[in-house]
């Protein structure tokens, strides 16, 4: 079975964001694989280790530097990569169109991706890809089993855990709690350099959403900070909770 994983290169989640000329400044920011996608890569590699999958293809749409994200996934254990060259200003629609075009050509039985990107937080692309391809999908998964041409997943739904089954081929999007992604080994990093990565141009698609402007949220101001005996501090904190924040006390 061929498994294809979509990965997005994003800012490190510990990065502090600044604006420059109205745009999000990228200089000096450490770039990583979107943590949700990294979990999808790990899930795919585990399927290969269990001999459920025989090939893991990793695809990223973005700028040339997204090659680093692909190489990281290859170092973790993916077999080959495809870089879909696309303007980073592409929206979720354009991104889904570009990725779906490549997926159609690759014709995998299972498509994995993170359910959301830690940067734009859109959580649209995997579901949009599924619709373009006419595949079923399951989102926000925390477990995955494949048997008899079907995939069954647990999802972190609102208010509980949902178990859903769909037929393959399917698009499945991961929650970060699905697994613990491995660090690439030195051997893996060396091997990754020799693994094939194709570069293709993105299928043409116009954005459906335009960014009007970016701004930084008003910085929250620090208020009172006290350093006193615990009983005094607790009395003051309790008073603040009751009278300033006006929280209700249940009993």
């Amino acid at each position: 079975m061929k498994v294809l994983v979509c990965v997005k290169q994003t800012f490190d989640t510990e990065a502090k964001i600044e604006l420059k000329d109205g745009k999000i400044a990228e200089a000096g920011i450490n770039l990583i694989i979107n943590p949700y996608d990294e979990v999808a890569v790990e899930g795919a590699i585990q399927l290969k280790e269990k001999k459920v999958a025989d090939e893991v293809v990793v695809v990223s749409a973005g700028a040339d530097k997204a090659m680093d994200a692909i190489r990281t996934a290859l170092a973790m254990g993916a077999d080959r990569g495809i870089l879909v060259k696309q303007d980073t200003a592409a929206d979720e629609y354009a991104r889904a169109v570009a990725l779906a075009a490549v997926i159609k050509e690759e014709n995998p039985e299972l498509v994995l991706a993170g359910h959301v990107a830690a940067d734009d937080g859109s959580s649209q692309v995997p579901t949009r890809i599924a619709e373009i391809l006419g595949y079923p999908h399951i989102n926000v998964i925390t477990s995955l089993d494949i048997a008899d041409g079907k995939v069954t997943c647990s999802s972190e739904a609102d208010g509980g855990t949902q178990v859903t089954e769909v037929s393959l081929p399917a698009v499945i999007s991961s929650q970060v709690s699905w697994n613990e992604p491995r660090y690439p080994s030195m051997k893996g990093i060396m091997q990754a350099k020799k693994k094939p990565v194709a570069t293709v141009d993105a299928a043409a698609a116009d954005n459906k959403i335009n960014i009007v402007e970016f701004s930084l949220p008003a910085a929250k101001q620090a208020g009172i900070k006290i350093e006193e005996d615990p009983d005094v501090a607790a009395a003051k904190l309790a008073d603040w909770i009751k009278n300033t924040a006006k929280a209700e006390i249940k009993n």
Binding site: F11, K16, A118, K208, I209, N210, E213, F214, S215, P217
Partner: peptide, 18 residues
């Protein structure tokens, strides 16, 4: 016209859907 808190709220993006 929508405001979205991206990068988990580190940046606000005003976007337009037409």
């Amino acid at each position: 016209l929508f405001t979205r808190a991206i990068y988990a709220g580190k940046v606000l993006a005003k976007v337009e859907v037409t």
